[in-house]
Nucleic acid binder design. Structure first.
Lengths: 187, 187
DNA sequence: TATAAGATAGACAGATCAGTCTATATTGTC
DNA sequence: GACAATATAGACTGATCTGTCTATCTTATA
């Protein structure tokens, strides 16, 4: 299953799909960029859709191992971690290769809710909400579900405004709004 | 400039691009669905990109003449209109053919910030923020810019969670959060 | 009814798409 | 060194892509 070539293909495809989109990037470009033979790709992945799914799973895994860890390193307490979420977003938005959220973009191109790609995007977003709910709960919010929902809305909204509208201060604005919601939740 | 055929082509393309995305829908499908000859399309639009731009402009125009009007009909006062925004979102999300925001989806497929398509998406989002800022200002918010930013984040976040994650209550959750922000802004 | 503008079908170009196949070469393992 | 697994280049299919061209037909206007 796991192999160096496979790994490299996923990383290459992640970069290309992330920058130019899923339909716009063909198999030919992936293998050319990865420096790999055509059949190597098709020996590791049944189809382009399977490759996309592998890319999204890697992206999700990286979110857990990078974004979440960054938040956890930034603060020891749940409330601090909630706020640190928006600092992490700010860092992400400021990176040169920021092209929005690969899951939002995937759902844009695969709008059929039953498509495995759309489903994977949905699962990722549910994970984000679950994570925020856990933090809200541990922080002692009066209504953790409500606070998590509000924070998730601010998070996704920040991603959209940063990417689509180029609002470089989206994460900071979101943090300010989050502080209001947090206070309202009794924290 | 304006003609029945041209109009019909834009409407057809709007429906197809909205449902299946911009790269996934070819010219062939647009003309087949519109029941129009190939050259009729190319006589009205220089290229597919020009057609996409026309589609986005129509979508923007419809947003002003439908969404905004709906909000204005719902309440006479600025504060009421801010809240009515989220009711209008709720109605939109509940429609059968809801496939997210065409501008967010366009930015997903055309991530180059200088691409006219991406630029058009950005202009639309800026319009939304301007609209909210105007309402926040007229409502007498202590910091209209800040309130507008918070409301815009909730709006875009709701669109994303409704589309990507299928959260049917996204608009209602956003409204609850908006009420908190509005109260915090002194209204 | 004559004229001009717009629309038609369909062929065509040249590129690209996803995916299959083969025959050869490289690699790691015993 | 023998064997098996993996990777290679590249031909190939059949479909699809955007965009161009032509020759005919319809339609509205004057």
């Amino acid at each position: 299953m796991a192999s160096a070539k496979r790994d490299h293909l996923i990383d290459t495809a992640l970069r290309l799909f992330g920058r130019d989109g899923y339909h716009a990037v063909g198999i030919d470009r992936v293998i050319a960029e990865a420096g790999v033979a055509r059949m190597t790709l098709y020996n590791h992945f049944k189809s382009k859709d399977e490759l996309i799914l592998a890319v999204l799973h890697r992206r999700d895994e990286r979110f857990r191992n990078s974004f979440m860890r960054q938040v956890e390193r930034a603060a020891p307490d749940p409330k601090g971690r909630i706020l640190a979420t928006f600092d992490a977003l700010d860092t992400w938005f400021a990176s040169d290769d920021f092209t929005g959220c690969m899951f939002i973009n995937a759902a844009a191109e695969y709008s059929d809710k039953n498509d495995p790609i759309h489903r994977t995007a949905r699962e990722h977003k549910d994970l984000v909400v679950d994570y925020l709910r856990d933090l809200a709960s541990k922080a002692g919010a009066t209504d953790p579900d409500d606070l998590a929902a509000g924070l998730a809305l601010l998070t996704e909204g920040a991603i959209v405004l940063a990417h689509v509208a180029g609002h470089k201060d989206a994460a900071r604005k979101a943090k300010k709004a989050a502080e209001v919601l947090i206070r309202d939740a009794g924290l």
